[in-house]
Design a binder for these strands. Structure first.
Length: 299
DNA sequence: CCGGCGTCCTGGGGGC
DNA sequence: TGCCCCCAGGACGCCG
């Protein structure tokens, strides 16, 4: 749950407050924050010292700082990660797992993460032929398995729709699959499906190509709208680098709206359990698919 | 290939 | 007032 819009809000903050500055010292508090950095936390801290931040970049929910030396610090916020730009004299935060000091002595960067699903790792920057002119510094090699997100210039909704329709999976599962289309989590999947009037358990192969492309268009639209509102926040967990929350939660039509009337037809929004998490939809606008019948394989 | 589920984690909230 | 259990879910890995 920070999804694409929330991560983009953070990226913009880092672009404004961190790019161009040189790291003097990194303190990692505990080893879990660097668990994806295979050589370990000490190696990570040592190798970050003295590096200059050239860009703050993002694909889907993956965020990274491009550094001199063709490397990047990859940041994943997980469920509850925050990147905060704060006065070095400020009291340390609860769950502060990393502290970045800069040679200019200015505001420090803090990685704060209550549930510690997020983390930091160093990666090599490699060119990405799919990028369509974006990411001039390249993308981290650890992010190459992630599909383009709907806000990237190279994103081709018809191509992604074709891939989805070739799958035998349900459409929500595919929206959540970061290797098919990135940046979408449970909130924006439910919002996109509500806008498209599609139930998430519909087999993607049962949708037409144009309907699937329209669904992806809704995903792009709803995430752009959320970004314009500063992101979605249910509590103080999802914040920009200054600790402020967005307000798109007031505009949600499906996610978390169980029992409230559908904005289109007035039918109460339902909650179903799917993939061990909640799915919210309108029973009337988004009817469940008919039970799939066993295929007849012989005769 | 596909889906279901377990794992990591913490704090808030409901029920008793 | 306190305790316990459930809930939130991103990414990944395992299993059938």
């Amino acid at each position: 749950m920070p999804e694409l819009p929330e991560v983009e809000v953070v990226r913009r903050g880092l672009a404004a407050h961190v790019v161009g500055r040189t790291i003097s010292r990194v303190a990692l508090h505990g080893s879990r924050v660097a668990r994806r950095h295979v050589p370990g936390p000490e190696d990570l801290a040592t190798r970050l010292a003295g590096r200059t931040v050239r860009a703050a970049d993002r694909r889907g929910k993956y965020l990274w700082l491009a550094l001199d030396g063709e490397e990047a610090l990859v940041v994943h916020l997980g469920m509850s990660g925050q990147m905060l730009v704060e006065d070095p004299a400020a009291v340390p935060r609860a769950h502060q797992h990393a502290t970045f000091a800069f040679v200019d002595g200015g505001p420090e960067l803090r990685f704060v993460d209550q549930r510690t699903f997020g983390g930091l790792a160093l990666a090599e920057l490699v060119p990405d032929p799919r990028a369509g002119g974006a990411h001039p510094f390249g993308i981290p090699d650890s992010v190459t398995h992630i599909a383009l997100d709907p806000l990237e210039p190279g994103f081709d909704a018809r191509d992604v729709a074709a891939r989805m329709r070739a799958s035998r999976s349900g459409v929500k599962r595919l929206l959540l699959h970061q290797g098919v289309v990135s940046g979408i989590g449970n909130i924006y999947a439910d919002e996109s499906l509500w806008r498209a009037r599609i139930h998430g358990e519909r087999p993607a192969a049962s949708l037409t190509g144009p309907a699937t492309a329209r669904l992806l268009g809704h995903a792009r639209d709803v995430m752009e709208a959320a970004l314009a509102a500063g992101g979605t926040s249910f509590d103080a967990l999802y914040v920009n680098v200054n600790g402020q929350s967005g307000y798109f939660d007031r505009s949600l039509d499906a996610y978390g709206q169980q029992g409230r009337p559908c904005a289109r037809c007035g039918t109460p929004i339902r909650r179903e359990v799917f993939m061990n998490r909640s799915s919210f939809s309108c029973p009337r606008c988004q009817p469940r698919p008919r039970a799939r019948r066993a295929r007849v394989t012989t005769d």
